[in-house]
């Protein structure tokens, strides 16, 4: 009953977030009608995708938002204050958790060695589930159908997931001054899941209304997790003290996503800011007994301030 209530609340939240996804661009266009700004759009475009080197760039986003947690009993991650910290040297850079060194840089391509903390464990750090009921079809009834007898997994028997540190290569292909493709391939370096993960992302920035400083960024791409990463975070295996009939092992996972960010300058330092993202979880992840959602949604609305 409690789980049913929790599920309904989660579905309701997702429905609200989907509504926000539709309403946010409309809200921004509405805002544009009444406001004025002196920033020229070409100048904005040129500088938005470039960053001054040898300078610490610190911003903060204040507002309200949430990142849903797909785990059974996982608490959604609230977003109220989100900092952004960046420092770019001539070759070295730190960009919101990514520590990198760009050893090839030209007008169209940058190839960097990059390292960062794998964010997948964030869901598990906000995981306070009750015991999980697994519909096991390991035994077969007389009529040949699976009886789907629910079996309980004691959550205390499941091993703690660890934070992994990934390192690898990142290729940025700058197609135009306002669009790029980013490809990443990383491997964990602290012996956590012993596997790979990667991503491919297309990024495009544009102004939907030519006479307006409104700025929209769209990102379409996918994350890829190797089999060993999927099984470490979402599998149930010998590391877990669970009846072997309840083990869950799967293959690699491809999670496609779309992200939409919009901002509107209110002053030199303040911007109205909103973000929505929708990620579809791969079958190999959503079929895990510890996962109850098919997707992952992030939504935020507020303002950003540049220090």
């Amino acid at each position: 009953m409690t789980k049913l209530y929790r599920l309904n609340r989660k579905k309701l939240l997702q429905l609200k977030l989907c509504r926000m996804l539709i309403l946010l661009p409309l809200l921004l266009i509405q805002l544009n009608v009444s406001a004025e700004t002196k920033i020229t759009h070409d100048a904005t475009k040129q500088t938005e995708n470039h960053i001054a080197t040898d300078k610490l760039h610190f911003s903060i986003a204040l507002g309200a938002g949430v990142k849903t947690n797909p785990l059974v009993g996982g608490n959604n991650i609230p977003l109220f204050i989100v900092p952004s910290l960046r420092f770019y040297g001539e070759k070295f850079y730190f960009d919101n958790g990514d520590l990198g060194y760009s050893f090839i840089q030209n007008k169209q391509l940058t190839l960097s060695a990059v390292s960062r903390i794998n964010s997948e464990n964030a869901y598990f750090s906000r995981w306070h589930p009750k015991n999980i009921f697994v519909f096991s079809s390991s035994s077969v009834s007389i009529d040949g159908n699976s009886p789907e007898t629910p079996k309980e997994i004691n959550i205390n028997d499941i091993h703690d997931r660890q934070w992994a540190i990934d390192a690898g290569l990142q290729l940025n292909w700058f197609i135009t001054s306002v669009s790029q493709v980013k490809v990443q391939l990383l491997h964990d370096i602290n012996d956590v899941y012993n596997g790979l993960n990667g991503s491919v992302e297309y990024f495009r920035q544009f102004s939907p209304i030519s006479s307006s400083p409104i700025n929209v960024q769209i990102k379409i791409g996918f994350d890829w997790f190797s089999q060993s990463m999927v099984n470490y975070y979402y599998g149930i295996n010998n590391k877990d003290k669970v009846n072997p009939t309840l083990h869950y092992q799967s293959g690699s996972a491809l999670n496609p996503y779309i992200k939409l960010h919009a901002n509107y300058p209110l002053s030199k330092q303040w911007k109205f800011f909103s973000a929505v993202s929708y990620k579809i979880l791969a079958t190999n992840i959503k079929d895990s007994p510890i996962v109850e959602e098919k997707n992952n949604i992030t939504a935020f609305i507020g303002a950003s301030y540049v220090f």
Binding site: N49, A61, Y88, D95, T110, Q217, H261, N263
Partner: peptide, 8 residues
Amino acid sequence: RRKLRSDW
């Protein structure tokens, strides 16, 4: 230089 991650 070009940003290697997009804003936010």
